[in-house]
Design a protein around this nucleic acid. Structure first.
Lengths: 149, 149
DNA sequence: ATGACTGCAAATACTTTGCACATGT
DNA sequence: ACATGTGCAAAGTATTTGCAGTCAT
């Protein structure tokens, strides 16, 4: 039953962590709130800096631990577009990522039809759990960095 | 005109590098041959070790440089399935990657229909140059590592 | 001839780990 | 009560860079 929307973000997160046997801690709550309050694609380092504003004692190791926990309980996605730091995304709706090869920014893009497993020719004994779609290209004529190309 | 198949791998690579203003070197040739001779998904480190067999003096830095050159001239794809080393793939046909979350192996999987840009809702001034599709899941009942789950 | 490429070693970037203490259940 | 999580510092991977010499064009 989709009743999660009736919960505050704290209760929601607490419940989702519990379902995976993970604990609800102040650090995980702050990291999660950082991610949902600004829907871009920060790296662990950026999450660390933002989280320090509301939770100054947090350490980088805890940020990694928290991000792993949030990914495990599926309230956050990890995005790997290329060699470099992983990015994190709190948009859990089905969507793809567009990564600009010139300026490096990552954008969420909606799928006109959600990707379905049958579109892909996977051996029958393989179990598909998730699909990540990443587009590469150039974001916009108006993008400052891109114009320099 | 698709006449590339009439060339040996050396001439083919040389031509593709030249198109991007990149030079054809012995190291790049060896790295390329390593990648086409075994169609799995080696990391830079694995490419380094394999390439040393035919080109013992090659250095890691040159392997990275060569891989970048091969990716730039589009004879090799870089595959980023998760946090960890990038992998390289010489299969340039349209295909997706299946990454087993249990054993870590990466498999090429064919697409029943090639992904088309219009399936994705991208702003009109964005230019899409490539699409990467990565599936995650579990590869097979028979997979040694997977059985331990 | 010249700039791009190579090999080496050192530097950087990203992520994980070990350990003593703290905290959630 | 006790396992799990935290913070710190140190270690471990992955990748990049500076530089002097070499090679492709």
């Amino acid at each position: 039953m989709a009743t999660d929307h009736l919960l505050g973000s704290g209760e929601f997160l607490s419940k989702r962590l519990a379902e995976k046997g993970l604990r609800f801690t102040s650090q995980r709550k702050h990291v999660y709130e950082v991610l949902i309050s600004q829907r871009d694609h920060p790296t662990a380092e950026e999450v660390f800096m933002r989280t320090k504003q509301s939770k100054p004692e947090i350490s980088m190791a805890t940020v990694y631990n928290s991000l792993d926990a949030l990914v495990k309980c599926k309230v956050v996605r990890q995005v790997n577009v290329d060699r470099g730091a992983a990015m994190y995304c709190s948009n859990m709706n089905a969507h793809a990522h567009f990564c600009c090869d010139d300026c490096g920014k990552v954008f969420d893009v909606n799928l006109k039809d959600s990707p379905r497993v049958p579109e892909v020719d996977v051996p029958s004994d393989f179990e598909v759990r998730s699909i990540d779609i990443a587009l590469h290209g150039r974001c916009s004529d108006k993008c400052e960095e891109c114009v320099q190309n």
